[in-house]
Design a protein around this nucleic acid. Structure first.
Length: 121
DNA sequence: CTTCTCACA
DNA sequence: TGTGAGTA
C-alpha cells in the first residue's frame, strides 16, 4: 500500500493527462523540462511519466512566466532553500507577546490600548 | 494510437 | 512556440 505522502510524488501520469489538467501544450511541458524546471521519470520506452506535484509545479511555473519571470530565474530560485514560511508555535507566541508589550509605544495616536484586555501578556 | 526527438517555408 | 517528419 502506497504511503499518502508518496501519492503526490509518484510519477504515474502520461503527458496527455498533464495536458488535460494544465491546459499547457506538450511543447511547453517538454520545453520547461529542457530548461531544468522538471524531472519527470521515463518509462522503459522513454515516455515521460508525471506526478501530481509535477502538475502543480507546471501550473505554478506558467503563472510565474506570465508574471514576467524567465525560465532561468525560476530554475535558480527553485534550487535555493525556501525562506522559512512556517513559524513554530513558540515563535508565534513570542512574536505576539512582544507585540502586545509594545503596543503603547508603537501606537501612532499614543493611546493606552493595554487597558481592558482581561489578561496580562 | 500516443509519445519522442529533431528540424525549420 | 508551433508543427510536420519518421520512430519506438
Amino acid at each position: 500500500m502506497p504511503e499518502l505522502s508518496d501519492i503526490r510524488t509518484r510519477a504515474v501520469l502520461p503527458i496527455s493527462t498533464v495536458i488535460a489538467l494544465t491546459d499547457l501544450t506538450a511543447r511547453q511541458i517538454r520545453y520547461y523540462e529542457a530548461q531544468g524546471l522538471l524531472h519527470p521519470l521515463r518509462t522503459p520506452g522513454n515516455h515521460r511519466m508525471y506526478s501530481l506535484k509535477d502538475v502543480d509545479d507546471l501550473v505554478e511555473i506558467h503563472s510565474q512566466l506570465a508574471a514576467g519571470f524567465s525560465l532561468a530565474e525560476l530554475r535558480d530560485a527553485q534550487k535555493q532553500p525556501k525562506p522559512k514560511t512556517k513559524l513554530s508555535d513558540e515563535e508565534v507566541r513570542a512574536a505576539l507577546r512582544s507585540e502586545l508589550l509594545n503596543q503603547g509605544r508603537l501606537n501612532p495616536r499614543g493611546d493606552s490600548p493595554t487597558q481592558g484586555f482581561g489578561f496580562r501578556p
